[in-house]
């Protein structure tokens, strides 16, 4: 390679590095916003889940609600939460891998699987792998709104109550830290099998913990009045709980996406630096070789004269 070729290469790597650096910074800013929204949502989500548990306990023995009852799970619905855009490392592929593995397991055991997808990446990959999503939701994963969650939740609940599916699961990248995302799979419906009933104290963490666990303790012993009654409340609470769970999944996925992209772009920038160093070295070597060559020619010429 000539000096000029290497120079062009260095220039182009430098340009790429400028882009990856900018993307890293944009992702960092968006991550901060997404984190704030998760923090704002958490107390509300925890309270809704707590109330759902409480009302479900109280509604025990009441006439069965269709939305509560577990039926023979013949068809499983799985919601894949991914992102609209790529360049975020393993972010989307780890969701697809985990979700498809669990779909294949269900099918081995003779159950049918219906998939839904949010995020352009997930929707198109699912279709590409021969699992056309029953519904795809795209265009908002950068900044999901409550209305988006509500629309998805409405469709999922309708699919469940109309008995298109007998179980609703959601799989998303849970947000742990900017560097870590955890693939999380939750059962939303039927409520009897829902993850919310199993988790008990888990949601009542941190600052709220003290006061709410006191409250929960109090409820178990005191007679709680329900207005109108626990069954009616549950009928409205369950859709709200599904909405809030979807909203939380979307928000966590968004924060995870920005975190994953930030990390991916940082390592891309670092790789670019390394490349630039290597190429610079190579260019210096080439220049040195050229100079040596010229000196040799001059010396040879001088010797020829002498």
């Amino acid at each position: 390679m000539s000096q000029r070729d290497i120079k062009t290469k260095i220039e182009s790597v430098r340009n790429i590095q400028k882009i990856t650096r900018a993307m890293e910074m944009v992702s960092a800013a968006r991550l901060r916003r997404a984190e704030q929204r998760i923090a704002a949502l958490r107390p509300y989500a925890a309270a809704i889940r707590r109330m759902t548990r409480q009302a479900a306990d109280a509604a025990e023995g009441l006439p069965r609600l269709s939305i509560l009852a577990a039926r023979e799970p013949k068809t499983i619905g799985i919601m894949f939460v991914t992102s609209d855009r790529g360049l975020a490392g393993a972010f989307n592929s780890q969701i697809l891998r985990a979700g498809l593995r669990s779909a294949a397991e269900h099918e081995r055991e003779g159950r049918e699987v219906v998939v839904w997808g949010s995020g352009r990446r997930g929707v198109s990959s699912l279709a590409f792998r021969g699992r056309e999503p029953a519904r795809g939701y795209t265009g908002f994963t950068d900044r999901p709104s409550y209305a988006d969650a509500r629309q998805i939740a409405g469709d999922l609940i309708a699919a469940f109550t109309d008995e298109e599916v007998d179980r609703v699961e959601v799989i998303y990248n849970g947000y742990v830290s900017p560097l870590t995302q955890r693939v999380t799979q939750e059962v939303l419906l039927p409520l009897k099998e829902a993850s919310v009933l199993g988790e008990d104290a888990e949601d009542d963490e941190d600052s709220e913990g003290q006061q709410s666990s006191d409250g929960a303790e109090h409820d178990k012993h005191a007679l709680v009045e329900y207005e109108p009654d626990a069954g009616e409340i549950l009928k409205r609470l369950v859709p709200d709980y599904v909405e809030i769970s979807i909203y939380r999944a979307l928000l966590e996925s968004t924060a995870s996406e920005h975190g994953a992209r930030m990390t991916a772009m940082r390592s891309a920038s670092e790789n670019a630096s390394e490349l630039i160093d290597t190429y610079t070295l190579e260019m210096n070597r080439a220049r040195q070789a050229e100079i040596t060559q010229e000196i040799m020619e001059v010396v040879a010429g001088a010797e020829g004269l002498g």
Binding site: M51, Q54, A55, H218, D219, A222, L223, V224, E225, Y226, E227, P228, A230, E232, I233, R236
Partner: peptide, 12 residues
């Protein structure tokens, strides 16, 4: 209308 010391309640 809710005042202090209201009985435990869960309402829509």
């Amino acid at each position: 209308g809710i005042l202090a010391h209201h009985t435990p309640l869960l309402a829509m």
